[in-house]
Structure formats: C-alpha cells, structure tokens
C-alpha cells in the first residue's frame, strides 16, 4: 500500500471517541479476560501520561475499580502530589499517598548517588545544592553518541556543569533507579492486596526509545498508552477532560532535586518535532520529504534516523523479557 504523503498533521487522531472506546474495551478484556483481576492500581505523578492512563482505565472499568497511588520522595516536586489529587478528585478515584523517602534511605539511594556526585564536584552538599544529570550531543550534525553531564545548581542559581565519567554516571543512574523500582514494588503490593492489575503508564516514545527503568516504571501488566505518540496523548487528554494545569505542565523527570525536562534529560527534541521524526523513521519516509516538512536538511534527517536506530538498538535489552530458552533436555 502506498504511504500517504508526509505532513505535519499526520499524527492527528481523527476519531478520538472511537480510539478511546477501543482502548477502553481492550483494557476490560485484558484485565478481566487475560489477567483475571478485579480492577487496576496506577501510580499517579500529576503528569500527562499517568493522568491519561488513569482516565482511560476509569472509562474502561469504572472509577470504583481504580486505585491511585501517589509516591513522592524528598526530591519530588510538591506539584506532583497536588496535581494528582486534583485529577483523582475530578474522576472520583480513591487514592493513597505512600512517601518512599524512607524506603530509598534504606536502599542508600541518596547516599550512593550523592557520593558519586561529590567524586566529581567535591563541594556538592545535598542540603545546599540541587543536582541533575542529562545528555548532551556535541553539535547537531555530530555522528558521535551523546554523553552524560552532571549539573550542580548553587544556592544562587549558578551552575557547575561537568561531563560524567562512566563510573559516576552509572552509579548515579543506578542509584536513582531505586526510585522507580521502589514505586513499582508498592504498586504490586496494592495490586496484590486488592487483586487488581498494575496499569503501567509509559507512552510510545518511552517504550520504543527505552526511556524507562527496567522492572521500575517499565513494569506493569497493561500499557494503555504504550502505542500513543506524545502529541496523541495530549489529544486524548483534551478529549477526556484532564485538568488544564496537568495538560499545560512541562513533562519533567521529577527524579533529581534540580528541575529537569524530559527533553533535556533524554529526548533532545520538543515533542511536536520528536513525534513526527519518530513516525517518519518508523515508517521509512524519504529523508528529503521529511526534511522539507520539518524544516531540516536531508543530511540532518539522515543523522536523526541513525541516532534513532542506535537508540532503539542500545535499549533493546530494556524491552527484553528474561531469556528462558535454555532447553537442553
């Protein structure tokens, strides 16, 4: 079948009601028919993805069959819990708050992370400074892979930025991943207690590009928005009546003490552009055709495709279930 010409509105959902109904029907079939559970638990961050996932689950199963859990820790933005509460109230969903700071202290999450930060910036004091890490590409046309940088924010707002050696980079990431894994552990506690399924909240980019923690936020029993591009998540959010303050909030990682957008941490493009580029890459659109629509050169599109391919390949391990074909007898 011939592809439709590439254009800026190519990801616009024409019949949102039909899409929402299809997703809701599948949630019902999966939860009741395949997983055999009475309802769903969902972690609520006050972000667009968990909000839309919750609203879809409510549409599918009814608010009385959904249980929302807010899981803040000491680095979380206070907005997260407040917005999640606004959302749950609007949709009539019961919630509980599980503060995970104590659990993370038990894992020495902060201690391990802060020691690695101090290795690089000896004056770092978690009581005084904020910190974050993010990736940086060396020039838009570079064929070199991106590298991780540490940013320590001084009390006066000035920043110390250092490239991270691999040892400290891996330690900071591994320690921070305790957060997502502690949350998944709590979600399964409540799911098992209620005989519910865990509704995971990753969107298509997170799944396909590996922007999740394996057995952390990459866990769950169903991913209702796992095939939706970010701009489509926003379209569905609008349709389902997700509160404006959530729809207008910039997606953040909410993982480090310093504020950090997802674009800065991982994606490198604004979502409007990223969605179109990823769609074009997946559907093998001609570089020149895509470039002329997006306003990039053929060479740049070629570079973007190559980086996507590399990202897809390097993160395939995250999407891989345990390898269990050790069939020798």
């Amino acid at each position: 079948m011939d592809k439709i010409p590439f254009h800026k509105e190519i990801l616009k959902i024409n019949d949102i009601e039909a899409l929402v109904e299809q997703i809701a029907r599948k949630i019902r079939e999966d939860v009741s028919g395949k997983i055999n559970r009475f309802g769903g638990v969902i972690g609520l961050s006050g972000g667009i993805d968990s909000s839309v996932s919750m609203a879809l689950a409510v549409r599918a199963l009814g608010a009385e069959k959904i249980f929302g859990i807010m899981m803040p820790e000491k680095d979380s933005s206070p907005d997260s819990e407040q917005l999640a509460t606004v959302l749950a109230d609007k949709f009539g969903v019961s919630t509980t708050v599980e503060v995970i700071t104590g659990a993370l202290d038990g894992y020495k999450c902060y201690e391990r992370r802060d020691q690695a930060v101090k290795d690089i910036v000896p004056e770092y004091d978690p009581g005084q400074h904020k910190m974050k890490i993010g990736i940086k590409h060396e020039g838009s046309g570079s064929k070199l892979p991106p590298l991780f940088y540490l940013t320590v924010v001084n009390p006066d707002g000035s920043e110390i930025v250092k490239r991270l050696p691999t040892k400290q980079m891996r330690t900071i990431i591994a320690a921070s991943n305790f957060k997502q894994r502690a949350r998944m552990s709590l979600l399964y506690y409540h799911a098992e207690r209620l005989h519910y399924a865990v509704v995971g909240t990753p969107n298509k980019h997170e799944v396909d590009q590996g922007f999740f923690v394996k057995y952390g936020d990459g866990g769950g029993d169903i991913f209702p928005i796992g095939k939706l591009y970010k701009t489509q998540v926003y379209q569905v959010a609008d349709y389902l009546g997700i509160p404006k303050e959530i729809r207008e909030r910039t997606p953040t990682t909410d993982t480090y003490s310093a504020e950090q957008t997802q674009e800065e941490f991982f994606y490198e493009f604004p979502f409007e552009q990223l969605d179109l580029l990823w769609y074009a890459y997946e559907n093998k659109y001609d570089h020149g055709e895509v470039g002329s629509v997006i306003g990039m050169s053929e060479e740049e599109i070629s570079m973007v495709y190559r980086n996507f391919e590399r990202r897809s390949e390097t993160t395939s391990y995250l999407r891989m279930p345990p390898i269990n074909d050790y069939i020798f007898i």
Binding site: L144, P145, L147, R310, E313
Partner: peptide, 12 residues
C-alpha cells in the same frame, strides 16, 4: 561510531 562498533556507553 557510524559503523556501530562503539555506542554511547562505548564512547564514554
């Protein structure tokens, strides 16, 4: 890098 001999972790 173009040939994928080293990835981003490999570069670091």
């Amino acid at each position: 890098f173009t040939e994928g001999i080293l990835d981003s972790m490999g570069f670091a």
